[in-house]
């Protein structure tokens, strides 16, 4: 990967990759692996970018896909089962950000199912239902209801610390 490509096409969007990778990993070590794998896949797939969407949307999609694939691989290695199952690992990486409330929110997000994590991340990143549906590959009509349910679950997990 040329450093030019990294500087121009990945670094400005690193925040997106970081936010997503943090939601799918529980340790700093895993986070670094996922982050690097996402960067590599962005670089390897750069020719597949058709400019039908914005580069940032494409980065979201690719980051989510890579994280889901890596998570699935990891689960297979440990003989876990359903792809949409709730994670069972202990959350170790609760201090990734300097903001305590954000760390709590991330801990709660990590306890959601894999797909729900993607949906809520995109929602919090202010993507439209249509965009979320496109990135996740679902029906936009269901997104609103799903987000409502996820938010309720998150509120419960945050133990009434949010409204």
């Amino acid at each position: 990967m040329s450093s030019d490509f990294y500087r121009s096409s990945i670094l400005p969007y690193a925040a997106i990759v970081i936010k997503i990778c943090r939601a799918y990993t529980n340790t700093q070590e895993d986070f670094e692996d996922y982050y690097q794998e996402v960067c590599l896949q962005i670089w390897k797939s750069r020719d597949n970018f058709r400019q039908q969407s914005e580069w940032s949307t494409w980065v979201y999609r690719l980051s989510l896909n890579v994280c889901l694939t890596l998570l699935k691989k990891k689960k297979n290695n440990y003989q876990h089962f359903a792809s949409d199952a709730l994670p069972e690992e202990v959350v170790e990486d609760s201090h990734a950000f300097s903001d305590e409330a954000l760390n709590h929110l991330y801990d709660a997000i990590r306890q959601l199912s894999e797909v729900d994590r993607g949906v809520i991340l995109l929602y919090l990143e202010e993507k439209t239902y249509q965009e979320i549906a496109e990135i996740i590959g679902t029906n936009p009509n269901n997104i609103g209801v799903r987000i409502k349910r996820i938010k309720e679950r998150l509120k419960k997990r945050l133990d009434g610390k949010v409204n």
Partner: peptide, 21 residues
């Protein structure tokens, strides 16, 4: 109490520069 949207926004404002490994 803050909403999750506010936590997200404010949290990332405090972490202005997210630096990847």
């Amino acid at each position: 109490e803050k909403s999750i949207e506010v936590i997200w926004k404010e949290g990332f404002l405090k972490n202005e520069i997210l630096v990847g490994p």
